[in-house]
Nucleic acid binder design. Structure first.
Lengths: 108, 108
DNA sequence: TCTTTATTTAACTAGTTGGTTGAATATCTC
DNA sequence: GAGATATTCAACCAACTAGTTAAATAAAGA
């Protein structure tokens, strides 16, 4: 088993262009494996694996109906990743702002 | 060489808890390899490699002064990752909002 | 110049990733 | 029930990751 940490898994899941494409496509709404694999030059089994990585990371949810598996996005984990980045990005932005403010001080 | 895509590299770089710790520590300001490695139960060579991964992803900058290498955060690439996530998170939030609005409609 | 300090590089290893193909499972349709 | 459809599972492989230790490089200090 690879990493167990939710942030590890989410960032890892997003570190692949095929998986980011799948996430992007799922913003159009619920889709099946076949739908998602459309136009991707890769075996269905490989796409299925990518989907499983996203699912394990908690980025999407599977609904099985008959022989078809339907997937849709789940926002919570994306939010966790966003929050992590935001903390440090905001820190940095504040730093730059402080520097700018400082430079604008009268020379005195 | 692994992936060449900037987003791949940034998300991959953040998918490791040691590297996220390094980023977190660098919000305290510029630090050397030795500083950064403090308290991390890992060889200096390993920490040095983690730093290189972050550097290659464009998340930090190296300034060599004498025998010491100083590192500091660079915000641009973090922003790229943040933007990617935001696009889809905002999409999702809007969806939920639309649903909520719909449920609040008078029944007519 | 010799030694210590700061860091990287090289060679190696175990485990993981991302793909393949072929078989298995489950469901739908005739 | 037989065949087609949708998808996963298993076994395999090449490439990459994340660590190790030992040696190399470079600069500082005595």
């Amino acid at each position: 088993m690879p990493s167990n940490d939710p942030l590890d898994r989410v960032f890892m899941a997003l570190a692949d262009p095929t998986r980011r494409l799948l996430v992007q496509r799922l913003t159009q709404g619920e889709q099946s494996v076949g739908d998602l694999a459309q136009g991707i030059d890769m075996s269905l089994a490989a796409v299925s694996k990518h989907i499983k990585v996203l699912e394990t990371a908690g980025l999407l949810r599977r609904r099985v109906a008959g022989r078809t598996h339907w997937f849709s996005l789940v926002p919570e984990q994306l939010t966790g990743a966003l929050d992590w980045i935001s903390i440090y990005r905001n820190f940095w932005r504040n730093r730059l702002q402080a520097l700018a403010d400082d430079l604008n001080q009268p020379e005195d």
